[in-house]
Structures are given as structure tokens and as C-alpha cells.
């Protein structure tokens, strides 16, 4: 391992972390602006031009507020909860390919932190770890509302992981690879997986909403029943971490959906543009296209949040176990039959 390679990866990972934090930061502003737009209000517009510096003001507020740790709580786990939540949110982006290999300063650089050959499963594993932060935090608070929120989060995550995994299996029947880089390369141009797996994509989308605890699946923090849900006892930046982890999760799952089903950095006519722009700016354009797709998904997350009311808990479980899982299994069988027919047995 040459030293330049290590430096290259280090810089790249730092840039990706900074980018995801920046996107998450401005998602909070976007959420408020979109909510305002949908409800015919103005939204935050005092800090900076058009409210541009609102996230900074919110961050400073979070840092400066008084920090309260309940006496009856388990101190170590109380602090470990939000730390785990934000850690698992951040490590998901490690296997996402952000663009084609790029020529910079006379070196060819892969725009992906690591291309492990079980990339999809890695993401799946990180998603399944995400619930620990909420569970540990909710339990350590020693508050019944927090505990209820934590338990709801756990059962919801476990229930929706199953259809998510099943929809990924159907996708794998089409792609024949677990590596995200391969999957993106196969969707070159306009051969996006969403055209081959429309049902699988829908199931994955619904499950992504449930795994990130977004409305209509935000029962773990359902304020009408549980005060604040799993973060009732949290204050200051620890509360900030929990809220921030949700936005990072939203960013990462948008990136995963764009990569798996919407062609990642591919767009129609990309060969022509790559020839025109050369090996430095061509991949950069592809990266820009990927980010446009990610922002579209983030907008969709917010659009749904301010449109659709929250489910009741039994409706949530019915949807997960009685609708999504049978649909996902039917999708696998159908995909299998079609694949066998196309390949001529």
C-alpha cells in the first residue's frame, strides 16, 4: 500500500463525510422550507438571505443549551445511544459509488471508499444496526415513554427489514452481483433497474421510509402518544445527534435507492458528454447527476411527510407483515420465472 493511496482514500472519505453532514444540515432547512411551501407559509427567513444560515443558528443553539442527564438513568448507555445512532448513520455511505473513475492531478481515482464484493449486504447490515442507538438510548433514559418509543422502533425495524431484504433478493436475480459498483455499471445509460424491478423498487421505498423512521412510519417518536418518543429525556446536542442521524439516514438511503434502482451516476447520453468533457469533468457531471437524483428523493421524503398522516400501530404491522412480505415474495417468484424464460432455461 503506497502512501499516496492512503492519503487519497483519507481525503476522499473526509470529503464524503463532510458532504453528507452538509447535505443533512441543509436538509433540516429544506424540510422547514418545504413544509412552509406545502402549508402556504413563508418558513424560516430571518437568518441570512432567505434563511440560508438557519442550520448554523440551530446548530449553535443545540450546542449551547443546558445538558441534562437524568439521575435515574444509566449514564454510559445514555451517552452511547446518540453516539451509536450517528455512527451507524455515517458508515453506510462507505460502499456507495459516487462516480466513474476520475482523472485528477495525473492520477486515476475511484470515487468510492471501498468496493467490497458484498456491498449490498453491507448496507443491509448497517441498516439493521441502526436500531441499536434508538433502543439503547430509549432504555437508558429510564422513562416509560422513551422505552415505548424504543420498543416500537425495534419491532418496526425488524418487521420492515424482511420485505427490504426480499426486494433486494429480487434485484439480485436481475443484476447477478452484490457489488454496488457492478450494479451501477450495468445500468449504463438509461437501462435503469427501476424499469426491470418496479414492484421491488416500491417495496424498497416503503421500507426505506420505515427504516429511517420518517412519516407515515414515525411511530417511535409519535408525540401525540409518547411525549417525544425515544428521545423524550434528551436535551442539548445529544438530542441534536438523534435528529441529525435521521437526516443523514435519509441522505444515505436516498443515495442507495438512486444507486440500486435509478442508475446512480448514469444518465442518457453520458458517453457523448464524457467524450466532450474529458476524463476529469465527465465523471464530475455524473456525480452531479447522482446528487440531483438524491435531492429528488430527499424532496420526496419531505413531500410525503407533509402530505400523509401517521399510521396507527396495528396498521403499520399489518402493512409490513400481511401486504409487503407476500408482495415481495411474489416479486421474487415472478422475477425468477421471467429470468429463467429469458435465459432459455
Amino acid at each position: 500500500m503506497e502512501i499516496a493511496f492512503v492519503i487519497e482514500k483519507f481525503v476522499f472519505i473526509t470529503v464524503i463525510f463532510a458532504l453528507s453532514l452538509l447535505v443533512a444540515m441543509y436538509s433540516t432547512l429544506a424540510e422547514r422550507k418545504i413544509a412552509a411551501f406545502l402549508q402556504d407559509r413563508v418558513g424560516p427567513n430571518r437568518a441570512g438571505p432567505g434563511g440560508m444560515f438557519q442550520p448554523l443558528a440551530d446548530g449553535v443553539k443545540m450546542f449551547l443549551k443546558e445538558e441534562i442527564i437524568p439521575t435515574e438513568s444509566n449514564k454510559f448507555l445514555f451517552i452511547a445511544g446518540p453516539s451509536l445512532a450517528i455512527l451507524t448513520a455515517c458508515i453506510g455511505s462507505a460502499v456507495i459509488p459516487w462516480g466513474q473513475d476520475i482523472q485528477l492531478f495525473g492520477r486515476t481515482i475511484a470515487l468510492q471508499a471501498t468496493d467490497i464484493n458484498v456491498g449490498i449486504l453491507y448496507i443491509f447490515g448497517v441498516v439493521s444496526l441502526g436500531v441499536y442507538g434508538i433502543m439503547i438510548g430509549g432504555w437508558a433514559s429510564n422513562n416509560k415513554f422513551s422505552l415505548m418509543g424504543a420498543i416500537r422502533a425495534a419491532s418496526q425495524n425488524i418487521s420492515y427489514e424482511i420485505p427490504m431484504g426480499l426486494s433486494i433478493i429480487a434485484l439480485l436475480l436481475v443484476t447477478n452481483s452484490l457489488s454496488l459498483k457492478d450494479i451501477v455499471e450495468q445500468q449504463h445509460g438509461f437501462q435503469w433497474n427501476v424499469f426491470y424491478q418496479p414492484l421491488g423498487f416500491l417495496i424498497f421505498l416503503v421500507c426505506a421510509f420505515a427504516e429511517t423512521n420518517r412519516t407515515p412510519f414515525d411511530l417511535p417518536e409519535c408525540e401525540t402518544e409518547l411525549v417525544g418518543g425515544y428521545h423524550t429525556e434528551y436535551s442539548s446536542m445529544k438530542l441534536g445527534f438523534f435528529l441529525f442521524a435521521e437526516y443523514i439516514n435519509m441522505f444515505v438511503s436516498s443515495a442507495v435507492m438512486a444507486t440500486l434502482y435509478f442508475g446512480g451516476y448514469n444518465y442518457p447520453g453520458m458517453d457523448f458528454m464524457n467524450n466532450l468533457l474529458g476524463p476529469t469533468f465527465g465523471p464530475l457531471l455524473g456525480m452531479g447527476v447522482l446528487f440531483i437524483k438524491i435531492f429528488a428523493f430527499i424532496f420526496f421524503f419531505m413531500w410525503v411527510r407533509w402530505t400523509i398522516p401517521r399510521f396507527r400501530y396495528d396498521q403499520l404491522m399489518n402493512l409490513g407483515w400481511k401486504v409487503l412480505i407476500p408482495l415481495a415474495i411474489a416479486n421474487i417468484v415472478l422475477t425468477g420465472i421471467v429470468t429463467a424464460l429469458v435465459n432459455g432455461f
Binding site: 458484498v118 447490515g125 439493521s128 432504555w139
Partner: peptide, 20 residues
Amino acid sequence: IVNFIVYMGAIMVLFLFVLM
């Protein structure tokens, strides 16, 4: 990765769930 998903991500969540 399967050990990671099945044991850490699913079975232990259930254990923790019941104990809580």
C-alpha cells in the same frame, strides 16, 4: 456479513427487546 446481519442485526435485537 451474514454473521453481522443475522446475529448482530436481528437475533440480538430480539434478545434486547425481550430483556427491556
